[in-house]
Structures are given as structure tokens and as C-alpha cells.
Simulated assay, not measured.
Amino acid sequence: MVVIYGIDSRLNPIKRQLSDVIHACMQSELGMPEDKRAHRFVPLSSDNFFYPGGRSDSYTVIEINMMKGRKPETQKSLIKSLFSEISSTLGISPVDIEITIKEQEKYQWGFRGITGDEAVDLSYKVNV
């Protein structure tokens, strides 16, 4: 699951395009299937979204939650791909993009009535 935060007036107009870019990067870097897009947008008013100095009001935070198993090189490749593709497609400077990957153990995920470690029919690989 991916959660994206930003100032509402900047984030709302680009949600679909940003979701497309994020998912394309996750497909190419992690092998995620087309139908596994799980994005949550949290557009905030500027008085509810504080960010570091040196950033513009295009500042965007992307939190990626995933089951543990991807190699550090794979995760770094995903982050670099996101910086590059978001910048080239949407014109948001890498200085205005913050990305965090949060990994949880497979047993800490629950979906379709089971936990992640019980799922044997995933259409993608976790250990990449």
C-alpha cells in the first residue's frame, strides 16, 4: 500500500498521473502486477501540512508499505526510479519528493481473510 501526502491544491490535480507513475515504477522495479495498485491520497490544506525549509508547495511525501523481503538494492532502485520518473513526468523536483519504505513481516499483513505468511497464491514475488 502506498500513501501519498501533499498540499491539496497541488496534489489533487495530479493524483491520477502520479498514481500511474508510482505504479509503473513498482511494476518495473518490484514486478507488481497491473491489478495490485493500492494507493491512498491524503491531500491536506496548507495549514495542515508543514514541511522542511528549502522545499516548495509541491513537496510530496510518499510512504510505501510492503511485506519484508525485498533486497536493499531493489528498494534503492525503486526510490531512484520514483525520483527520476516523478521529476520527468510531473516536473516535481527531487528536492520536493520524500520517499519512505516501511517494511513489515509477512505475518503482520492481513488481506482476503488471511495473513501474508499464509498466502501461497500471490501473483508477484516478495523476495526480489
Results as ranks from 00 to 15, higher is better:
1 M>G: 12
1 M>W: 04
1 M>K: 03
2 V>Q: 04
3 V>S: 03
4 I>G: 00
4 I>M: 01
4 I>Y: 00
5 Y>R: 00
8 D>Q: 11
9 S>K: 08
9 S>I: 04
9 S>Q: 10
10 R>F: 03
12 N>E: 08
12 N>A: 04
13 P>H: 00
14 I>V: 01
17 Q>S: 11
17 Q>D: 13
18 L>S: 12
20 D>G: 08
20 D>I: 08
21 V>M: 03
22 I>H: 03
23 H>R: 14
25 C>F: 05
25 C>T: 11
26 M>F: 06
27 Q>D: 13
28 S>F: 02
28 S>G: 04
30 L>F: 14
31 G>I: 05
32 M>S: 14
32 M>A: 15
33 P>H: 07
34 E>T: 11
35 D>I: 13
36 K>G: 09
37 R>M: 11
38 A>S: 15
38 A>W: 14
39 H>L: 12
39 H>G: 04
39 H>M: 03
39 H>N: 14
40 R>K: 13
40 R>I: 15
41 F>H: 08
42 V>Y: 05
42 V>G: 03
43 P>Y: 03
43 P>H: 02
45 S>A: 15
46 S>N: 13
47 D>A: 08
48 N>D: 15
49 F>W: 15
49 F>Q: 06
54 G>E: 06
54 G>A: 14
55 R>W: 02
56 S>I: 01
56 S>P: 10
56 S>T: 14
58 S>P: 09
59 Y>E: 13
60 T>P: 10
62 I>A: 04
63 E>I: 11
63 E>S: 04
66 M>F: 05
67 M>V: 10
68 K>Q: 11
69 G>W: 09
70 R>Y: 11
71 K>S: 05
72 P>M: 04
73 E>Q: 08
75 Q>E: 06
76 K>N: 10
76 K>S: 06
80 K>M: 09
80 K>P: 00
80 K>Y: 09
82 L>G: 03
83 F>P: 09
84 S>E: 07
85 E>Y: 00
86 I>E: 08
86 I>K: 06
86 I>C: 06
88 S>M: 05
89 T>Y: 05
90 L>C: 01
91 G>L: 05
93 S>P: 12
93 S>D: 14
95 V>F: 07
95 V>K: 15
96 D>K: 01
96 D>L: 07
98 E>F: 12
98 E>K: 04
99 I>Y: 09
99 I>E: 05
100 T>V: 14
101 I>V: 15
102 K>L: 12
102 K>C: 06
105 E>S: 04
110 G>V: 01
110 G>R: 08
110 G>E: 05
111 F>T: 07
111 F>H: 01
112 R>H: 12
113 G>Q: 10
113 G>D: 10
114 I>W: 01
114 I>H: 07
114 I>M: 12
115 T>W: 12
116 G>L: 02
116 G>T: 02
116 G>D: 02
117 D>A: 10
118 E>H: 11
119 A>N: 10
121 D>W: 12
121 D>G: 03
121 D>A: 07
122 L>I: 06
122 L>R: 15
122 L>F: 10
125 K>R: 11
